[in-house]
Design a protein around this nucleic acid. Structure first.
Lengths: 187, 187
DNA sequence: TACAATATTTGACAATTGTCAAATAATAAA
DNA sequence: TTTATTATTTGACAATTGTCAAATATTGTA
């Protein structure tokens, strides 16, 4: 919870009493390694924050599993389209390690946003952050080759290799496992 | 202006008096073909809406010009990172045709957002729309080949080929002009 | 420890796309 | 209309990455 507060304050320092109310709608849960936070076809009701731990967002694409996102310690994540558009999620989410996860229900958030302009503002800034990250990732995928993408990931998240199977990382980077294996050794 | 109102209402129907105030901060300008709306290195102060016309957002990458976005008739566009983070823009924007452009200054928008919760909500929804589009485009770039990306563009914006030079479209799709030329003929 | 299951690496080859140069087509200017 | 300029297409070849199969390494479990 500590870390969640810190991350929120970095995005926008919500004044009281809105802050207390906002924090109160986050629920804490523990997920065992392998457990699902969200399954394909469910409407994703939550925005999540992983404290200590790691989760993977993925989906099925022609008999392959595509890793859409990896979130390690102290990061937000959610199934964007399902959460916002209230449609069944194409994405599934599971824990890669035993993880401490905080989650906030869509309806609770919307209710607070109605009541509190300041909370709406915080939420707007959270989405803005996601949008900027999305742009950066898009550019990386479009213009960097396998080696450059791997290096970028390494420098932004150095311990990811020790904690996440190579096949997931490769898919997240948009390359095959074999290519990633070659790229990270030799050359 | 008509079309701008329609598009805004689709995103969120802002009630009066907020709507009138919001509309009043949009300024209308005409740009001649080739004219710049924004040059590299400037801080991008505006969110834009092109009425009738076409614009191109691009940047320089190792002696090549990369087309980051193309906006035709009745669409929003802006230099996301510069607009939100108030840093000099890596992107430039110019008109591909004589264009009718509406623009809204960052500071005016922020002032209205402070005053009006409803306006903040509209803005939040506009960003959410951008985020979802960004996700869809990212997936297209990551998992579709040149031919599929071209087809997707054609179906979402059929007249783009008649109005935008092939080299810009190719760059926008993340492929070379030669590959696009081959993909759209034969095969 | 030894075995089984899973994960990663390696090799051979194919598919896709990029690069560079030249030819052709389309457009704008004289 | 003719010419000059710009845009698009085509060919030959190279680079990158993907695919499939097999080998090796790692991890978890009896």
């Amino acid at each position: 919870m500590e870390e969640l507060c810190i991350r929120l304050a970095q995005i926008y320092p919500l004044p009281e009493p809105a802050l207390s109310k906002f924090l109160s709608i986050w629920k804490s849960t523990s997920y065992e390694k392998g457990a699902h936070l969200l399954k394909t076809g469910q409407i994703s009701n939550y925005m999540y924050f992983v404290g200590k731990g790691a989760v993977r967002i993925y989906y099925q694409k022609e008999e392959k599993e595509i890793t859409e996102w990896l979130a390690l310690d102290n990061n937000f994540f959610f199934s964007i389209q399902s959460f916002f558009q209230r449609v069944p999620s194409r994405l599934a989410i599971h824990a890669l390690e035993n993880s401490e996860v905080f989650m906030m229900h869509h309806d609770d958030l919307m209710q607070l946003c109605e009541q509190s302009h300041e909370t709406e503002k915080l939420f707007r800034k959270m989405i803005t952050t996601s949008l900027i990250l999305s742009q950066i990732r898009m550019e990386s995928i479009q213009f960097e080759n396998a080696h450059q993408r791997y290096q970028r990931l390494l420098s932004s998240s150095p311990d990811i290799l020790r904690r996440v199977p190579l096949s997931y990382i490769a898919s997240f980077l948009g390359i095959t496992q074999e290519t990633l294996s070659r790229v990270r050794n030799a050359r």
